[in-house]
Design a protein around this nucleic acid. Structure first.
Lengths: 239, 239
DNA sequence: CTTCAATTTTGGTATAGACCAGATGAAGGG
DNA sequence: CCCTTCATCTGGTCTATACCAAAATTGAAG
């Protein structure tokens, strides 16, 4: 897998990357269309697309389906251990944060959830699906499950902000321990659609389980992030 | 970006995924060649490749350049906060771990490293490049920088194991705090070649800065992981 | 048996053309 | 002004073909 430095698509990649780095194309701006990028100079559209895929994998550009290719804004720095503040985090970085609640339902505890919460199958749970955006671009979708016994009537509270704050102020539930699992993944059917990206694009799957001081699971959160939208930063004291 | 369930390449993807899930193709086994997968049934090779790329992004298969496509083994679970034990971690999961030292050199502190270590530009540093493999497949390359003033003659110690153990036993340097930055990225020229993957494939960039009790940086480590080789798991107590 | 050269197979790159569905924007109707 | 309609533009998918370089295999020679 040596790079002979003569591959056509890498040359095209470099040409576009240079225009972006030079400021000719700014974050959020649309690139010329694939057919315009061919310029008539004997370059097949497939080669142009290969270069665009490369830039996309590097997080330099992104696409909106059938709309065009755009220059990526800088990623958001995110510390999963300080989960109380997606909104304030993003805004502290000078960006505009939005949260949409896609759905909120009461569900019966599934066999998959039962061992996590230590509750019987069928026990009432709340499930909340939210989409969060930065500067108008959807960057993550998440599904949160909360034990209804711990937070009765949770769904009547405002859910477009910090859920942890709601749990603390309305139910006096404080999170004492946090388990975070992260794995690079491909965004498939459901998540890809919610994030308006093509199925199969790389993403990051973050699963967060929050416990209170008694060791009860108070929040189970599965997040799917666009791969180019975030930078994870964790600061840890050694045990 | 809806999925009409009638896309040809997704059908091919599902067919191959089924054969893998059904156990017909086992982890580590080679898939039939792209031309064999066409079976003569009016499917262009480009469509077959599109399906293979999809499976690759999902971490189900991987490729070796011009050798073929292979079924991915399960990922390694890795806790970056317990960095002392890559080898023991991997072996505790029943896998075979290897570490190769690609290079070890004494360098002069660069302008980029100076503020990290709080040392003047030109101060002596050690730089170690290693490649680590699981079951014979390279999964990460890392570049470690250590202040030579803290660990004189470090390079004469064995470096194919745990560096943190060496620092502790030979120099009595204990790590007290750890900062971990992670960002999905594309594996480009250098790292891609070391990992024997195609440039542009998604990966995970992990930057780890280790401090001792006095706040001095004792280790600065930049790791590039194959995206499908690991699952990150962090357990955190709330501050 | 091992060693080395030649052959075959494989994925990687590239071109050219075609059609489709969703996004976009302009034109027209209310 | 807003809303709808429609033509156009855009990326998404697909076929067919060609050549290349590296890997894997074969086969001959030692």
């Amino acid at each position: 897998m040596t790079q002979p430095d003569s591959l056509h698509y890498l040359g095209v990649r470099d040409a576009i990357a240079t225009r972006i780095a030079g400021g000719e194309l700014k974050p959020g701006e649309r690139l010329p269309s694939e057919r315009q990028l061919q310029v008539g100079g004997g370059v097949a559209r497939g080669t142009i697309r290969e270069a665009l895929f490369q830039l996309e994998a590097e997080g330099i550009i992104y696409r909106k389906d059938r709309s065009g290719w755009y220059v990526s804004p800088p990623p958001v720095v995110y510390d999963p251990t300080r989960w109380e503040g997606f909104m304030s985090y993003v805004e502290a970085q000078g960006r505009r944060a939005e949260t949409e609640t896609l759905s909120k339902t009461e569900i019966a505890c599934t066999p998959a959830l039962a061992p996590i919460f230590g509750r019987p199958v069928g026990a009432p749970m709340y499930r909340i699906r939210r989409r969060r955006s930065v500067d108008g671009r959807a960057v993550l979708v998440e599904t949160i499950v909360v034990d209804a016994a711990l937070a009765p009537d949770l769904l009547s509270h405002p859910l477009d902000g910090s859920l942890t704050s709601v749990l603390k102020s309305a139910y006096n539930i404080a999170v004492a321990r946090n388990r975070v699992d992260m794995q690079p993944c491909a965004l498939t059917r459901g998540e890809a659609e919610a994030l308006q990206v093509k199925s199969g694009l790389p993403g990051l799957n973050v699963v967060r389980t929050s416990y209170d001081a008694q060791g009860r699971v108070v929040e189970f959160d599965r997040e799917y992030w666009r791969h180019d939208a975030l930078k994870i930063s964790v600061d840890i004291r050694v045990r």
